[in-house]
Structures are given as C-alpha cells and as structure tokens.
Amino acid sequence: MQENVKPLILITGATGQLGRELRVVFEDIENFQFEFVDRKNFPLDSVEQIQAKLKAYKPNCIINAAAYTAVDRAEEEFELANRVNHLAVKEMAIYSQATDCKFISISTDYVFDGEGNRAWVEEDIVKPINVYGETKALGERAILNENRNAIIIRTSWVYSTFGNNFVKTMLKLMSEREEIRVVDDQVGSPTYARDLAVAIKGIILSEKWIGGIYHYANEGCLSWFDFAKAIKKLANLSCSILPISSAEFPTVAKRPKFSWLDNSKIKSTFGIQIPKWETSLKKMLIEMGEINNNSI
C-alpha cells in the first residue's frame, strides 16, 4: 500500500536572504516536503527550461524568493533582469494555474515612483523609475494575467543575518571609520527577512488563500539616515553619521524617495501580526551577536 505523499513546496532563491530565512522557519514543519533551489539547479534566466523543471518537481506550492536585484547593473542588463523578474515568473504562474499549484511571488516597493506622501496601498498606480522596478512590475502583471489566484507580496529594504544588506554594511563601515555619510531624503520601511518568512509560513499553513497583491514591511517609516543612527545606537558604535541628499550620493539607477508600504491588507486578510522595525532590528542584531538579550 502506497504511503501518503506529503505536499511539496518548491522555494526558489535558496541562497538569498529570504530563501535562507524560509529554510530556518520551515525547519519545524513536518506535514510538507520542501525543495530549495537556486540559480545552479533552477536558473530563472533559462526561461525555456522552467516548465520542464517544474513538471519534474511537481510542486503543490511555489514560493518564488528569487529575483534579479542588482538595481544599478539592471540599467545596462534589461534583458537579463526581464528574463528573471518577468518572463520566469510568468512561466511559474502558467504552471501554477494549469496544475492548481499555489504560487507566492515576492515583489518590491520599487514598482512605485516614490512621489507619494502617504503609505502606498496595493491599489496605487504602479510607475517604476528604474529598470529593476520596471521588470518587477512586468512580472506582477504577468503573474496576475496568468493566475488570478497567485499571491504577490511587495516588500522593501530587506535585511537579514544572511547575505549582504544595509544593516551589515553599516556595522562594517561604522566599525572601520570615524565618519560616514548616509542619505536622509529616501524614506521607507525596513523589513527583517525572518519576519517576512514567518508571515509566508503563516499564509501557507492558513486555511485561507486569497489571491492578489499584498504589502509586507516592518511597521514604521524612517529614512536611511535614521536607520543608520538606530543601528549605531543599538550596536554601541562611536562612528559619526552625517546626513546627505540623494543628489550628493548619485547612483546609476534612480531610487524612489518615498517607499513606505501600508500593511493593512495582509494583516486583515490573513491575521498576520507585523513587528515594529525597531523590535526586529534588535532581534537581528542579537541573532548576529552584535548585542545581547538585555538590549531588548
């Protein structure tokens, strides 16, 4: 007699910040199988192979945590960014619709132009100002065109104990230098990838599944400069931090100046509780051993 086969969840982007956090939070789940794939065994730029690879895995749920995220390089690599962020996710959406497979894909605050003065809601007009945001917006549209039951989660300013990110860069620079300069006219919501992974786990384990676009970032809004000051204070570093404008720190790709995401929809739909950014930053720094538990 054949044993019952556990449903399989396929997670792309296994070596990225969110992918590695998902591996951590799914460790204690016994009623699913998990397959974590990365660019070596599941290259999203090989769009023509995606259907065959998905048919080989036969997932019951796909979590797409992979993306082309080199924001500045994307300005010169539109085709590659478009294959990964748009055409590849379109293939996943086609597969998930045809096989009744659940599909969650991660998107970004960069689909907005950053010209708002209130937290962005899911229904706001998408108007990206760089190639990365454009390809992610195209991916969103393709997903919902192919599978209205898919879930898209837009997030922002992601950091983790894994990989490279703003928090770890600040810790390194502040420990090496007496003074650094940080942009103070870009405002948004930091997101601890562990919290986002926990939220995704909650959706997967929930009996409720409602397709559409959702926003998820830690509660609160601040500038990169204020975020850097908070990191300095918690880590008890002495480096001086000076505020500068985006014009004084030019980048190849333009960045949205206002990226605050409204979390109301994901909280009310799935009953998800979202920590404040200060709480999550402390948790991450404790996890890294930068501060002790008494700091909370």
Rank of each mutant, 00 (worst) to 15 (best):
I291Q: 10
T279W: 03
T191Q: 09
S189V: 01
F34W: 01
S96T: 02
V37M: 08
A65Q: 07
D195H: 11
K127I: 00
M174F: 02
F32I: 00
F42S: 05
I203N: 07
R23K: 14
S259Q: 15
T99E: 15
Y214K: 09
D38Y: 08
I296P: 13
L222D: 06
E77W: 02
Y57I: 13
S46F: 07
F103E: 09
I9M: 10
D100P: 06
P190N: 15
A56W: 00
I286D: 03
I104W: 12
I200A: 06
S105K: 02
T15D: 13
S175Q: 15
N60I: 00
E140Y: 07
K53V: 06
P250L: 07
I50T: 12
A253N: 03
L234E: 12
N164W: 06
V183L: 04
K265N: 13
I231A: 12
N60R: 08
L10A: 10
N117C: 05
E178C: 04
N164P: 09
N85Y: 00
A14V: 10
I210W: 01
E290M: 09
E248F: 00
E77G: 02
I152E: 04
N60K: 09
T135R: 06
Q273A: 12
I94S: 13
F78R: 14
I213D: 03
D109N: 08
E219Y: 00
D184C: 10
F34H: 05
K102S: 06
P250F: 01
M284D: 06
V126K: 13
A74C: 14
M170S: 13
S96A: 15
N145S: 15
K127V: 00
F225M: 05
L8N: 05
F225K: 07
E146D: 12
D109Q: 08
C221D: 04
F258D: 11
M1R: 10
S156Q: 04
F36M: 11
I62P: 00
Y110E: 08
Q97L: 06
F249G: 05
D195A: 07
I274S: 10
A14W: 04
N164R: 12
S264C: 08
T99H: 13
